[in-house]
């Protein structure tokens, strides 16, 4: 169980991450807001409580690693890394600018704290399996946390990687499905349904659970569970655009934007929530 004070800290962190996402994407006026906001709570729990890492030494060999295979959610990771001190907060405003260290999709060569280059959907899954396998071969105790979109799971490579991870018992891998129910062209259930994630992952040799992926306590319980002999899949039941009511209620919210005043209004709302927790 998460203590009340810890829960408050995580809630604050999740709000700070959301504000930072809006800082980054707002500096441009548009971006992949929906799928960045949906994983903000999972990132808060991972970086707030679960993971072993050192912002001063982002390449530390036995760090826990994060692979955001849904690479377009890069700004959510950048927001988290900036809040946690991997690089200056002001750098968020360079998102997608010429010469930036923060490209729209994650790049391990450019950004301190980014462990994998992703963007061509599905590819991060195999990379994460390889990283986890490598850490296991080296006898390290660290884990790899992999974010995969529900729409991304249309890609065949996702299931090749899952089959390998299950078959070879890559049990230091935690596979997080951001099941926010939407992809670019509409509802995942309409575009190309992926069927029952929990049953599929169990069939692929994983321990699999479904939780409310925007509920910090449920996230903490699921992410702090001891590893068994199988890899673990956590299906995050999330809301695309979570935390900003207008974005949540926008049907096509994969990529969207607004003027400066809109972003300020959204950030003000979050800042008020943050103050209320102080």
């Amino acid at each position: 169980m998460l203590e009340a004070a810890k829960l408050t800290e995580l809630k604050k962190l999740s709000l700070e991450i959301r504000i930072a996402i809006l800082e980054a994407i707002g500096s441009l006026g548009a971006g992949h807001l929906g799928g960045a906001l949906s994983i903000a709570d999972a990132l808060a729990v991972l970086y707030g409580e679960i993971m072993k890492y050192d912002p001063a030494d982002p390449g530390m060999e036995d760090r826990d690693k994060v692979v955001c295979s849904k690479g377009h959610a890069g700004p959510a990771l950048y927001a988290t890394l900036a809040v946690k001190g991997f690089f200056p907060y002001e750098m968020l405003k360079t998102l997608n600018r010429p010469g930036t260290h923060l490209p729209s999709h994650c790049d391990r060569l450019l950004t301190p704290g980014i462990d994998a280059t992703t963007g061509s959907l599905g590819q991060g899954t195999s990379e994460a399996v390889g990283m986890a396998l490598g850490d296991k071969l080296k006898g390290l105790k660290c884990r790899t946390f992999l974010f995969v979109g529900d729409g991304e799971s249309n890609e065949g490579q996702v299931w090749e990687a899952a089959m390998f991870a299950g078959a070879k018992k890559v049990n230091n891998l935690v596979w997080l499905i951001d099941d926010n129910k939407k992809q670019l062209d509409g509802r995942t259930a309409d575009v190309l349904p992926v069927f029952d994630f929990v049953e599929k992952f169990k069939a692929f040799g994983f321990d699999a659970v479904r939780i409310d992926g925007n509920d910090l306590e449920q996230l903490y319980e699921a992410l702090s569970a001891e590893a068994g002999d199988k890899p673990r899949a956590i299906i995050l039941d999330t809301v695309k655009g979570k935390g900003i009511k207008e974005i949540e209620e926008t049907e096509f919210n994969h990529s969207l934007g607004g003027d400066e005043a809109t972003f300020e209004r959204w950030k003000d709302g979050l800042r008020k929530e943050l103050e209320a927790l102080a």
């Binding site: 060999e61 391990r108 462990d115 994998a116 590819q123 899954t125 195999s126 990379e127 994460a128 399996v129 390889g130 990283m131 986890a132 396998l133 490598g134 850490d135 071969l137 080296k138 065949g156 490579q157 090749e160 990687a161 089959m163 390998f164 078959a167 070879k168």
Partner: peptide, 23 residues
């Protein structure tokens, strides 16, 4: 030695992941 089965795309990705942690 790792037999990835008949899944070449995954094999290439796993190799890349292994390389990224020093293999």
């Amino acid at each position: 030695a790792f037999d990835c089965g008949i899944a070449e795309a995954n094999m290439a990705g796993i190799a890349a992941g292994l390389a990224s942690v020093g293999f």
